[in-house]
Simulated assay, not measured.
Amino acid sequence: MIKYEDVSNPCRPLEQCIEWAARISEECFSQTEAVSALQTEEEKKLDLTVAMPAFDRNTCSIPKSQISFIDYFVTDMYHAWEDFVDLQELLQHLDNNFKYWKGLDEMKLRGI
């Protein structure tokens, strides 16, 4: 149950989903900028591929990261849990939010 709650953001109403995606992205950027800044800058100086582009604030696509998160972690987990609990409302939010992020991605938008 704790893990379900931990990854529940995409199952919330769209406004809350967007708000928390922004907060989580900012937290991720802030934490990784300090740690990876030197590594990333060194990679760029040496003309190497940046090893952690998902954490580069300048190139990260929040819609793509949300789509991946939903695809890899949330969808199957919530559908499995549905065998035990009625999650129709949460799954509807999940579907709506996935479509929102997909729409932004299709418009080539990187932000929220």
Rank of each mutant, 00 (worst) to 15 (best):
E42T: 15
K3H: 11
N9E: 02
F69A: 04
S65D: 09
P13Y: 06
Q66A: 03
Q31S: 12
E27M: 08
E89R: 08
Q31D: 06
S36F: 02
R12A: 08
I67Q: 04
S8R: 05
C60T: 05
M1V: 15
N9P: 00
N97V: 15
Y4D: 01
C11V: 05
Q66P: 01
L91V: 09
M1H: 08
L104S: 09
L46F: 11
E41S: 09
E19F: 04
Q66W: 01
V7F: 01
L109H: 13
L109Y: 10
E26H: 07
V7W: 01
I24F: 11
F55P: 00
D86S: 15
L46C: 12
A37S: 10
T75R: 05
N58M: 09
E33R: 07
K108W: 12
S65M: 14
A34E: 11
K64R: 12
Q39G: 02
I24H: 06
K44M: 14
N9T: 07
T49V: 14
I67H: 03
A37Y: 02
Y78E: 01
V74D: 02
T32K: 03
A54S: 13
P13V: 05
V35H: 04
E27L: 07
D83F: 04
V85H: 12
A54I: 07
D76W: 03
L48F: 15
S25I: 01
A21W: 00
M107Q: 15
A51K: 15
N96Y: 07
L91R: 07
I62Q: 03
W81P: 00
V74L: 04
N58T: 09
D76L: 03
F69K: 02
M107I: 05
A34C: 08
V35I: 11
Q66G: 02
E43I: 06
I67Y: 00
M107W: 05
S8A: 12
H79K: 14
M52R: 11
E89F: 09
F29M: 03
S8H: 06
K45I: 15
N97K: 15
Q88K: 15
E5P: 03
L87W: 04
Q39L: 12
R57S: 10
S25N: 06
M1T: 13
A37C: 09
T59S: 11
V74I: 12
P13A: 09
F69T: 02
D95L: 08
S61W: 04
D56H: 02
K102V: 12
A51I: 14
Q66Y: 00
D56L: 06
K102S: 15
M77L: 13
T75D: 04
G111F: 08
F73P: 01
Q39I: 11
C17Y: 00
K99L: 13
S25E: 03
D47W: 10
C17F: 02
